[in-house]
Design a protein around this nucleic acid. Structure first.
Lengths: 332, 332
DNA sequence: CTGAAAGCGCTAACAT
DNA sequence: ATGTTAGCGCTTTCAG
């Protein structure tokens, strides 16, 4: 492996016999050139394999043409799809999307974002970070948007309304004839209270019971671990809602291992509509939270802010109920 | 939102009444200071909310303390887990991992990597990129490692041996008594021929048939679309291997929709051992390719190269057969 | 222990 | 159309 020094604008200028300013203008297509200069430049650049150093460029322009996206857990397909959406839009518009994974550790958020921020023109950040970091972000010298609503801060937010998402699901389940509800939440997430409220808004007026459980991480493994707690009890729920599909899938799987028939003995539903929710057994009823569209919309919003263009209106996306077999019980 | 200018080392120096060199040394903990200076510096930095601009720093040091990871498709849980592994190790060692998604588009690889490369001290790249880009990467002035073996280039590679992975699976399936094999490959991936060869190495000596099909993208949706082609034919295979779990899951799902009993009528197996392979119906037999460990190992390797430290030895990971119900047929 | 000054690779006035 | 020059924010000799 040849560890040759990367060639600079000065190398090109020298080889082509012009000034570095000319090279800069050529590389940035800022004007036209005499045929002679253009030819020399083209071949010098090709010979040297020169390409701009975006960092040096950024130092003077103050722009990076990169946008940062910090997610809680890239292994969660919901976030992976947000990334997909944001990435596509970014690339189409000449931006690079730089993704960092916060590993569900809110403690690590601050240093990660401090490192990411100066490398970007704008930031997209998962909502579940500490208030002081949110405040720091809000005072940053660049546009910031959040995926979900951070606690008690009035900041730019893109996504579905968590209350609405939960209500939508609860309404359907009530219609299906379920009477004893369980919710396995993730209390550390900012959206958890909202989802709970969405459920209660529907269940309390109807006089229906809601038992609440909690997992320590929003994963299928945690869902599996929580299943026994929710199921092996006299007042066992007849439907259990996972705070997201991952958790619901784990719950459902363990329920079957425990000998329960799904949905006959106990039904399950999730939230997110991750791709695999279709393929589990039985296919999981869930609410589509428009993961990819969220990424697209938040990216457009950030770009508009960077470029001082008129900004998109609708930052709240409409969730959609996805009915599958995991809740298809013949009503009693 | 206050769009105040980010404060610089000069602001801190002025406020603390010292030179910028002193601030720099303080921030980088390069020596000790008089109590007076230390106090002034601490409070000035706190007041101003100063933090270093890593780009400016990189300009002079030539180091970024960031490592780039370019994956084909972040929505593929295999890659998501590689990211997890790499990210954890990076963070533990004071590096930042910058992830970019190439969206399964090899055409976009070059510009993406050109933008990413100068922002990093080293690069980790999915193998499936064009030879000229591989060559360009190999001549870069920084360490590069590949996830898998790029076509015909002798470069640093981390991961499992695709031939071995496929052979391992085939051997087990032969032992299980399967006789007519199907493989649904993804011919655009560099590992496809190797996986095919691994299968043939086992099947041909045993005189067993292998029908080969192809998908145009390595996803569950593509697997679903391919299912009919592989199943609705007189010489239908009794076991079908998907080139990865995603494809296998799609195949299996569609097979069941088509009325086949799995594994009684036709069995399925995948490759990767993505988390959801456990939760589909029936649970999918697969080969663990150590996704997370791959990320960890490749990260350690890159760091060692950057820091000129002795490098890890084993860059080839040992795959493990994961036997689940999708192939558990009572042998004929 | 502290500071002055050079310069990383590049762009953006401002000349010519 | 092309060149000169002053920095962007920072680190790093080198002096003091």
């Amino acid at each position: 492996m040849s560890r040759q020094r990367r060639s600079t604008i000065r190398d090109v200028a020298e080889k082509a016999g012009v000034s570095i300013a000319t090279v800069s203008k050529y590389v940035n297509r800022q004007q036209s050139f005499s045929q002679a200069v253009e030819d020399k430049l083209r071949s010098a650049i090709a010979d040297l394999g020169y390409s701009q150093n975006p960092m040096a460029r950024s130092m003077v322009t103050g722009r990076t043409t990169a946008i940062g996206l910090a997610v809680m857990d890239i292994a969660n397909p919901h976030y992976a799809n947000v990334v997909k959406g944001a990435n596509r839009v970014a690339l189409e518009n000449g931006y690079n999307l730089l993704v960092v994974d916060m590993e569900e550790s809110i403690a690590a958020a601050r240093p990660l974002l401090e490192a990411l921020s100066p490398r970007t023109d704008g930031l997209i950040v998962s909502a579940r970070i500490p208030p002081d970091v949110v405040k720091w972000l809000a005072n940053l010298d660049k546009p910031v948007a959040f995926l979900g609503q951070p606690e008690g801060e009035d900041v730019l937010t893109v996504g579905t309304d968590s209350v609405q998402v939960a209500s939508l699901l609860a309404q359907y389940l009530v219609r299906q004839g379920f009477r004893k509800f369980g919710y396995v939440g993730y209390s550390r997430a900012s959206w958890n209270i909202e989802r709970l409220r969405g459920l209660r808004d529907v269940l309390e007026p109807a006089g229906l019971a809601l038992q609440v459980f909690d997992v320590d991480e929003p994963t299928s493994e945690a869902g599996e671990r929580a299943a026994a707690r929710a199921l092996l009890r006299p007042d066992r729920p007849d439907v259990i809602i996972g705070c997201n599909d991952l958790v619901a899938i784990g719950l459902m799987s363990e329920a079957r291992s425990l000998g329960f028939k799904v949905p006959e003995d106990v039904a399950f539903a999730g939230i997110d509509n991750i791709p695999t929710s279709r393929y589990v057994a039985p296919p999981l009823t869930t609410v589509d939270v428009c993961s990819q569209a969220t990424g697209e919309v938040v990216m457009k919003q950030i770009m508009a802010m960077i470029e001082n263009k008129p900004q998109p209106e609708n930052l709240t996306l409409e969730p959609a109920l996805i009915i599958r077999e995991s809740t298809q019980r013949i009503p009693v």
